[in-house]
């Protein structure tokens, strides 16, 4: 869907009833819908928390320093994303592509960190099937990680375009929409970090 929303007809700023761009509006509606998606996942995690008879339990395996660092990485990727957009909006595709690459790399660092964390938990005996914590935790954070991965692919696509000079000022909206997605993924992690990791 993410890429699908990427190019649609009427690209040449058609006048609309509200004066607002249709693609951007579509994307905000999509994010509203995503709120319900992650809301249901988080609700399930919270409802099932503390019901496990068998471990490992969250406090036994979470590494708060490590996850804090991951959260920090994702926060910083939001900064680089917004700087990429600012550069593209100025018409500076060279800087823009650099910031896009930085964002994608930070995103990949986050996903890499998640892979490491999952492996670590796996060896400590927490599998998808071990207990409710395993099921709810891996599915919730796994879906978040999938979103980040889609975002990374999207960012590299934009990077390739920007490097070849194909995202002039007039097409800054393409980057803005990718940015909205990226920041959304970031705020979902803000919620997960607090609700899942810190409030155990």
């Amino acid at each position: 869907m993410a890429v699908a929303a990427h190019a649609v007809p009427h690209a040449a700023h058609p006048p609309t009833s509200t004066g607002l761009n249709s693609r951007k509006m579509l994307f905000w509606a999509f994010l509203g819908s995503e709120c319900m998606f992650f809301g249901s996942l988080i609700a399930t995690y919270l409802v099932y928390r503390g019901r496990d008879q068998v471990g490992p339990h969250p406090h036994e395996i979470f590494s708060i320093p490590f996850t804090s660092f991951s959260a920090f990485v994702l926060l910083m990727s939001s900064l680089t994303m917004v700087l990429a957009l600012a550069a593209i909006q100025r018409g500076d595709q060279k800087k823009g592509s650099l910031w896009l690459a930085a964002t994608a790399l930070l995103g990949m660092t986050f996903v890499g960190g998640q892979c490491y964390e999952f492996t670590e938990f796996f060896y400590k005996g927490l599998h998808l099937q071990t207990n409710l914590f395993g099921s709810t935790f891996f599915v919730l954070t796994g879906f978040h990680g999938t979103h980040v991965t889609v975002g990374v692919i999207w960012l590299w696509t934009l990077f390739t375009l920007a490097v070849r000079g194909k995202i002039p000022k007039e097409k800054a909206l393409d980057v803005e929409i990718a940015g909205l997605y990226w920041h959304f993924v970031d705020i979902v992690w803000i919620a997960i970090f607090t609700l899942v990791y810190l409030i155990q």
């Binding site: 819908s33 998606f37 996942l41 998808l128 599915v139």
Partner: peptide
């Protein structure tokens, strides 16, 4: 999105043996 999540849980339970 809500039914999507419910169906995801169901499929995970059936295909990977989770405990939802």
């Amino acid at each position: 999105p809500v039914i999507t999540v419910a169906l995801v849980f169901l499929l995970f339970d059936r295909l990977t043996g989770t405990n939802f």
